[in-house]
């Protein structure tokens, strides 16, 4: 069974005001098949954690490690991390003009599998996955994320999750900007991928809303760049009722 392990991770970014330390010693261990929710107030470093694991060049790892089955991930290129089985569903997927979604999906599948998927079964799989996410067929003819609404972009992320079949998925605020119906559809997609591929999930969210549809095994409360408290699903319920106030420096709470 695969394990994704984050150990004492320190990460900074360069800003106009100088170097800003964001992650201050994060520890997390996710086994395949487990669903972990990382919750926290805005600016606590949740997204930085997601992008650091995926290898975004903007984030500078000061120290610590991220290993996948004992192999260091932080020294890998972005694409090598994806090929190793790590998937990041982005909060703001970018538009890529002129690149058709169908071509993009097949290209990604080909590099991840090391060979092109047989065409007919692949097209059928894509079509079924799109149906599951209530995406119009015509979507695959459109350019990647171009002109997609916020909700469509999120569905497209989950479509990729279902088709590319990673070992671990990091969902960066996938619930943001979704109405209830879209949230349900997207959550069902995540649950399908979880069940079908024994997916390990790191679900990053500000709100407890998505946890009604995706049931976490573990909840980590993220405050000021590190995990402040950990527990089971009951912790999410408590956050639902109490908010993040008790984790925050009283002086900073308005």
């Amino acid at each position: 069974m695969s394990v994704l392990e984050v150990k004492d991770l320190h990460v900074s970014v360069e800003t106009e005001q100088g170097t800003k330390h964001i992650l201050k010693g994060v520890n997390l261990s996710i086994k395949q098949g487990e669903i972990h929710a990382v919750m926290g107030p805005n600016g606590s470093g949740k997204s930085t954690l997601a992008y650091s694991i995926a290898g975004h060049p903007k984030y500078h790892v000061e120290s610590g490690s991220v290993t996948l089955d004992g192999v260091e991930v932080l020294t890998m290129s972005v694409d090598a991390r994806a090929r190793a089985g790590i998937f990041l569903a982005m909060q703001y997927p970018v538009e890529i003009p002129g690149v058709r979604m169908a071509d993009f999906l097949r290209t990604a599948k080909t590099v991840l599998d090391g060979e092109a998927p047989p065409l007919r079964p692949w097209l059928k799989e894509v079509s079924e996955a799109m149906k599951g996410l209530r995406m119009e067929k015509a979507f695959s003819e459109r350019n990647v994320n171009e002109g997609f609404s916020g909700g469509e972009k999120k569905r497209h992320e989950i479509l990729q999750l279902e088709l590319l079949k990673p070992k671990f998925a990091i969902l960066d605020e996938t619930d943001s900007g979704l109405d209830v119906d879209a949230l349900k559809i997207v959550s069902e997609g995540v649950n399908r991928a979880h069940a079908a591929n024994d997916l390990g999930v790191l679900l990053i969210t500000h709100y407890t809303r998505i946890l009604r549809y995706i049931k976490p095994d573990f909840v980590h409360v993220f405050v000021d760049g590190r995990v402040a408290e950990e527990g089971g699903p009951e912790l999410a319920e408590r956050l639902e009722n109490e908010g993040y106030d008790r984790f925050l420096d009283p002086a900073s709470v308005a």
């Binding site: 995926a54 290898g55 975004h56 060049p57 290129s77 972005v78 694409d79 991390r81 994806a82 090929r83 998937f87 990041l88 982005m90 997927p93 970018v94 890529i96 690149v99 993009f104 290209t107 990604a108 590099v111 991840l112 990647v144 990729q160 590319l164």
Partner: peptide, 17 residues
């Protein structure tokens, strides 16, 4: 980054873009 995060090499990602 988006393309690379899907396993596509940097060179191929540039070509696609």
């Amino acid at each position: 980054f988006y393309l690379q995060a899907r396993g596509i090499s940097e060179e191929e990602a540039r070509r696609l873009v």
